[in-house]
């Protein structure tokens, strides 16, 4: 039996070629996008790690100051001091949330606002840090002995011009001398 071949069945049509090309372009574009994301993630990991250590820095600075204060309490306080007397000693603010900023000698002074200019430029990224202390206990705990320290570190990605990124860490300090 003979199979008849069409005289006109000579190759691809223009539409077929165009669709194929569009598909190839889309696949390559996706592959390049994945590669670009990989690099972006590596850079974001750098900034997150730096931000984390800046948050730890604020926590340890305050812990250190409180430790020192409780060892050598202010003359007007009874021994040992607690978080509230420690903070009131350092600020004129009477609000429940108290802000802290670093001064030039890397000691915490107690003033509202964020720290930006005193934080170093790390891998071309400028970080901003905000530290607050509030009366709050961990979830499910009913006690006046706790104070919640919240540390926010914010940065804007210079590599990808993205919006600000924030890490926010909460620490609870337990102080038996606190009522």
């Amino acid at each position: 039996m003979k199979i008849k071949r069409s005289k006109h069945n000579k190759g691809f049509t223009l539409i077929e070629v165009l669709v194929s090309l569009v598909l190839v372009v889309l696949i390559v574009q996706k592959a390049m996008g994945a590669v670009s994301n990989h690099q972006k993630n590596a850079l974001m990991a750098t900034q997150r790690l730096q931000a984390y250590y800046l948050a730890v820095e604020a926590h340890d600075q305050l812990q250190s100051m409180y430790n020192l204060e409780s060892k050598t309490p202010h003359s007007t306080h009874t021994t040992p001091t607690n978080w509230d007397t420690f903070m009131k000693d350092k600020t004129s603010s009477s609000t429940s949330d108290i802000y802290f900023t670093l001064d030039g000698s890397k000691d915490y002074q107690y003033a509202s606002g964020s720290e930006t200019s005193l934080l170093p430029l790390m891998n071309k990224t400028q970080f901003t840090r905000t530290v607050t202390v509030a009366k709050a206990a961990p979830t499910g705990v009913s006690s006046n002995h706790y104070r919640k320290l919240n540390i926010k570190v914010i940065w804007s990605d210079v590599h990808f011009k993205s919006t600000d990124t924030v890490i926010s860490l909460d620490y609870y300090f337990y102080d038996p001398n606190q009522n």
């Binding site: 800046l54 340890d60 812990q63 250190s64 409780s70 890397k106 170093p120 790390m122």
Partner: peptide
């Protein structure tokens, strides 16, 4: 670059 502060625990 990295910066942090470490305080002894009490």
């Amino acid at each position: 670059d990295i910066q942090t502060t470490i305080s002894p625990e009490i």
